Amino acid sequence: DAPDEFRDPLMDTLMTDPVRLPSGTIMDRSIILRHLLNSPTDPFNRQTLTESMLEPVPELKEQIQAWMR
């Protein structure tokens, strides 16, 4: 099983494109984008959230890719 820090906190699946929300939570980009289609909010604190506020986490993405090899 993947380490917890590699798993999306909402869907508990392996992240492939991790992004940091303004709240500091790291999620998979595809999952948070799907959530934003229904509700333009951070799913953990209900603060306003837009796609432009998502910050890529390239170092975590590299760690996940290395773990998958």
Rank of each mutant, 00 (worst) to 15 (best):
R29V: 06
L33T: 09
S39R: 06
T25R: 14
M15S: 02
L21E: 00
D17M: 05
P22S: 05
S52M: 10
T13V: 13
I31R: 00
N45W: 05
R29T: 04
E59V: 09
A2K: 05
L36V: 05
F6L: 06
N38L: 14
R7H: 07
G24S: 04
L37I: 11
P58W: 10
S30T: 12
T13W: 08
S52G: 12
M15T: 00
M11R: 08
I32H: 00
F6V: 02
P18Q: 04
D12V: 06
R7Y: 12
V57D: 07
L10F: 09
N38I: 14
T50W: 10
G24D: 03
F44M: 05
P9N: 05
S39M: 08
L10A: 04
L37V: 11
R46M: 15
I26A: 02
E59C: 10
P3S: 05
F44G: 04
I32A: 05
N38R: 12
E5C: 13
D8V: 02
E59Q: 12
E55A: 10
S30V: 11
E51C: 08
M11A: 13
G24K: 04
F6W: 09
R69F: 11
P58I: 09
V19T: 04
Q47V: 10
M53G: 05
S52E: 13
S52Y: 11
K61C: 08
E55H: 08
T13E: 08
D28E: 11
R7F: 13
Q65T: 11
F44Y: 07
N38Q: 13
I32T: 00
N45I: 06
L60F: 06
I26L: 04
M68C: 12
T13F: 08
P9Q: 06
L49N: 00
T48Y: 15
D1S: 14
D12K: 15
T25I: 15
Q47D: 12
M53S: 06
F44K: 02
R34H: 13
E51H: 09
H35P: 00
L36E: 00
M11D: 10
E51F: 09
V19R: 00
L49C: 07
I32L: 06
D1T: 14
A2C: 14
P9S: 07
L37E: 13
E62M: 13
T48L: 15
R69L: 14
D28T: 01
M27L: 07
L21F: 04
G24T: 01
G24N: 05
A66K: 13
K61Y: 11
L14G: 01
T41Q: 08
P40C: 10
M27Y: 05
H35L: 12
M68R: 08
P18V: 04
D28V: 04
R7G: 02
T13N: 07
M53K: 05
L21V: 02
G24C: 07
L60N: 00
T41P: 02
P58F: 08
M27I: 06
S30E: 14
E5D: 10
R20T: 03
T13C: 15
S23L: 01
P18K: 01
P18M: 01
P40V: 07
M11E: 13
P56H: 07
L54H: 00
P9F: 07
N45F: 07
P43K: 01
E55Y: 08
P56E: 12
R69C: 12
M53I: 04
L36A: 00
I64Y: 03
S39N: 11
L60M: 07
G24E: 01
R34W: 13
T50L: 11
P3V: 05
I26V: 11
T41I: 09
E59L: 12
I31C: 09
R7E: 02
M11L: 09
T16G: 07
L49G: 00
D8E: 03
